[in-house]
Design a binder for these strands. Structure first.
Lengths: 123, 123
DNA sequence: ATGTTTCAACGAAAGATTTCGTACTACCTC
DNA sequence: GAGGTAGTACGAAATCTTTCGTTGAAACAT
């Protein structure tokens, strides 16, 4: 079974779970509140919906439930990139990388790292 | 003024406009019908909504209106990549490129092309 | 044991997206 | 000019997402 693409809101929750590890609603809520104002029950509801979708798992053994991302950060990123490749780049990984480079957010060190990856892949 | 991120449906229409150039509803509809079944008025409505959002422009001089993407393919791709970088990759272009490479959809030739870009950027 | 705090569940409202039916207008053909 | 064809506009239904109020239960504190 393949998971649905997370929405923007869902992704912001997943990012918290990846950084904190398995967390309670309260913990997620506290982190999200740093960025924007939103109610506790909003986060709770979203996590409930995400549980139904299979995006997160829920540990209900304690009264205070603990949520965890169902997929690793890398797995999700991989899916999102492939999705974007298909939807906006006609499958061309090259074009996508060109735009990523053009965004100018890569440091010198990252550029070297990418070169290393290319060497490895090209052989 | 900055344009909103196109939805999936909107992006599929933009892709047609980029490939055909300025087009009528009928032309867009015909292309989209190759992939999936959807009504003529659905496409019309979407283009009307997209006009309001500013994603496309509409030439109304003739009775049959002609729609064109408000941004080039490259501009839109750039925006989408930056958006994804921010939402899912914590701004790390490196991680995004790693996933793009890992998706394995890049040919030998494309890999060389990327290397050329790196040279240009780094050197 | 009573009151306070913490939590999950539920339902519902508001907004956005996708879809199309219906209606109305312009043009074209005979 | 009557009837068909091709087009736009409008509105509304269906679905999904985001948001939160309210309720009731559990845990805790005094």
């Amino acid at each position: 079974m393949t998971l649905p693409r997370p929405t923007d809101g869902e992704l912001s929750i997943l990012r918290v779970l990846w950084s904190l590890g398995p967390s309670t609603v309260r913990q997620v809520h506290e982190v999200l509140m740093k960025d924007r104002d939103l109610g506790y029950t909003t986060v709770l509801k979203m996590l409930q919906v995400m549980t139904e979708k299979g995006l997160v798992t829920r540990d209900e053994r304690e009264r205070t439930h603990v949520y965890a991302s169902a997929q690793t950060e890398g797995q999700t990123q991989r899916t999102l990139v492939e999705d974007l490749l298909g939807r906006a780049f006609g499958g061309s990984a090259l074009k996508l990388m060109v735009q990523a480079l053009a965004s100018g957010q890569a440091s010198q060190e990252e550029l070297r790292e990418i070169r290393r990856l290319l060497d490895q892949k090209e052989g």
